[in-house]
Structure formats: C-alpha cells, structure tokens
C-alpha cells in the first residue's frame, strides 16, 4: 500500500506538485492499480532473466564524424525565456 507520505515523496521525485488535499485521493487510485500489479508476486520467476531488449542486437555505433548542429535561432525558437543566446529559467538555488 502506498501511503499519503509516499505519494508526496514520489511527487517530489517526479517533480509533480501534489496538493496536500489531493494526496489521499491519489493514494487511493494508485493503490487500486498497485493491488493489480501485486498479482505478479504469484509468478515464479526464479532463474528467469529479465527482458530489457526484445531484439537481441548489440554494438550499434556511429562514426566519430561531425554533423551539422542547429542554428542558435532554431535552438531557442520554442521558448520566449532566453537571454543572450542562452535559455533562461528561475534561479536554481
């Protein structure tokens, strides 16, 4: 069971502000899904390797060759928050 406190902690980890008044409601909905996930506890996975990649390929590389970068205008084209060629955000301290 996920607690109200855990919901708030996970909300912080995921950088999603959760109003205190809503964390109970969140916990309720998340718990019904987690309950359902709990059925996997019953599956015997002893000695079963995890499948991270469904296709068995390795060593995909590119050569160390320069390709064109984007012009600065294009880089900054999707934000109005910019200054002297940089992205601009609120302070980070």
């Amino acid at each position: 069971m996920i607690t109200k406190e855990e919901v708030e902690h996970v909300g912080w980890l995921a950088r999603i502000r959760i109003d205190e008044t809503k964390s109970d409601a969140y916990a309720g909905k998340l718990n019904s899904v987690l309950d359902y996930f709990g059925q996997l506890d019953k599956v015997d996975t002893e000695d079963v390797p995890p499948t991270y990649h469904v296709m068995d390929i390795v060593n995909v590389f590119r050569k160390d060759e320069v390709t064109e970068s984007m012009p600065q205008d294009a880089v900054l084209s999707n934000t109005e928050y910019r200054k002297e060629g940089n992205f601009k955000t609120p302070k980070i301290i």
Binding site: K83, E84, N86, F87, K88, T89, K91, I92
Partner: peptide, 13 residues
C-alpha cells in the same frame, strides 16, 4: 547564475 549566488535573479543555460 545571473547576479550573485545568494541573490540570483535567474539561471542561464
């Protein structure tokens, strides 16, 4: 950081 660390007005990236 724009301005001093203590009184930063924002961050440039």
């Amino acid at each position: 950081h724009i301005g001093t660390i203590e009184k930063s007005k924002g961050t440039l990236i």
